[in-house]
Design a protein around this nucleic acid. Structure first.
Length: 264
DNA sequence: CATTGTCCCTGGAAGC
DNA sequence: TGCTTCCAGGGACAAT
C-alpha cells in the first residue's frame, strides 16, 4: 500500500524514464480510475503533451505537462506504475515516445486526474519531511483533536503522506499508544512523535519502500522497508524490544499493530 | 469543524 | 476439493 516512502520511490525511479518524453496515446482498461475530466476527454487531451516534470505531494504523484496541465495519480491501496510489460491487473497504459507507463492496480482503487492546476491538493497538510513541518507546527495541529492519535495521523489534512503502516511504526518508535487522544500528548511526547514520524519515513525511503503486499518499484522489484518494521503487520509476533506479542486492534477499521507493554 | 461509519474493489489466505 | 469468511485499507462522502 503506497504511502509517502513508496510514492517517493516511484517518483525517484520513474522520473528519469518519463520526464522529457511525449505522450503518444492512452489506453484505459478500467475507466473507473478517471476522476476528472471524463475518460473520453482524458484520452483526447493527453496525447501530444510532453512530460516536463514529476513530483510528489503527500501520496499523490504529479506529472507536469508542457501545456501547463497536470496529470495527477493516486495509487491508493494496490496501485503501482510499471515500466515493464503489463499483466492481467493493468488498468491503464500511458504510451510515450520511449518507455510506456503501465498502471497496475489489482483492487481498482487508484485514481487519475487531468487538471489545469493543483487545486485538488490544497486540502493537504504539510509535508512531514519539508521545512514547514516543525515540532511546534505539529503540536498546534494536534491541539483540540480528541480522536485517537492513530486516527489523527492518518488524516491527510493534518499531515500529508503518513499511512497505516508508517503511523504504526512511528507510534511504536515514540512509545505512544495508538488509542491515546491526540490532544493528550505532552510536549515531550509530541516532539518524540514528530522525530519518529520523520525517522520512519526517511528509513522507508532509504529502503525503497515497503512491499508488504502489492507494492513494486517501477522495474517490478520489491522494496525492503517492510523488513525493518517493528510492529506493522506483525500481529502475534514478539515485540523486538521486550518480546511481548504484538497486538492488533481496529482503529476506524484500519488494522493497528502495537506493543501493549512498550507503548503508553 | 471534528468525528465516525460506509463504500468502493479484488485476490490471497485461513477456516471448515 | 471447494466453499465461505476475513483481511489488506486510502480517501470520498454522508451523517451526527
Amino acid at each position: 500500500m503506497p504511502e509517502l516512502p513508496e510514492v517517493e520511490t516511484i517518483k525517484n525511479e520513474l522520473g528519469p524514464y518519463v520526464v522529457g518524453r511525449k505522450i503518444t496515446g492512452v489506453t484505459l482498461l478500467w475507466e473507473g480510475m478517471v476522476r476528472h475530466p471524463s475518460a473520453e476527454e482524458l484520452r483526447s487531451r493527453l496525447p501530444g503533451q510532453r512530460i516536463t516534470g514529476l513530483s510528489r505531494r503527500g501520496k499523490y504523484l504529479v506529472f507536469s505537462l508542457d501545456s501547463g496541465d497536470l496529470m495527477i495519480i493516486h495509487l491508493k491501496m494496490s496501485g503501482t506504475l510499471w515500466l515493464k510489460p503489463p499483466d492481467r491487473f493493468t488498468r491503464a497504459v500511458i504510451h510515450l515516445d520511449g518507455s510506456d507507463i503501465f498502471f497496475r492496480d489489482p483492487r481498482k482503487f487508484g485514481s487519475i486526474w487531468l487538471v489545469g492546476d493543483a487545486g485538488i491538493l490544497d486540502k493537504l497538510g504539510p509535508e512531514p519531511l519539508g521545512p514547514d513541518f516543525t515540532p511546534d507546527v505539529f503540536a498546534r495541529r494536534l491541539a483540540g483533536r480528541s480522536a485517537p492519535i492513530k486516527a489523527v495521523l492518518l488524516d491527510q489534512t493534518l499531515l500529508a503522506g503518513v499511512g497505516n503502516m508508517y503511523a504504526d511504526e512511528a507510534l511504536f518508535a515514540a512509545k505512544i499508544h495508538p488509542l491515546r487522544p491526540a490532544s493528550s500528548l505532552s510536549p515531550e511526547e509530541t516532539t518524540r512523535l514528530y522525530g519518529a514520524i520523520r525517522q520512519v519515513l526517511l528509513s522507508g525511503i532509504s529502503h525503497k519502500g515497503a512491499s508488504t503486499e502489492t507494492f513494486f518499484r517501477p522495474d517490478g522489484t520489491r522494496g525492503s522497508a517492510h523488513l525493518q518494521f517493528q510492529v506493522a503487520h506483525r500481529g502475534g509476533k514478539p515485540c523486538p524490544v521486550c518480546g511481548t506479542p504484538i497486538q492488533r486492534l481496529a482503529v476506524r477499521n484500519r488494522g493497528t499493530y502495537f506493543c501493549p507493554k512498550c507503548q503508553h
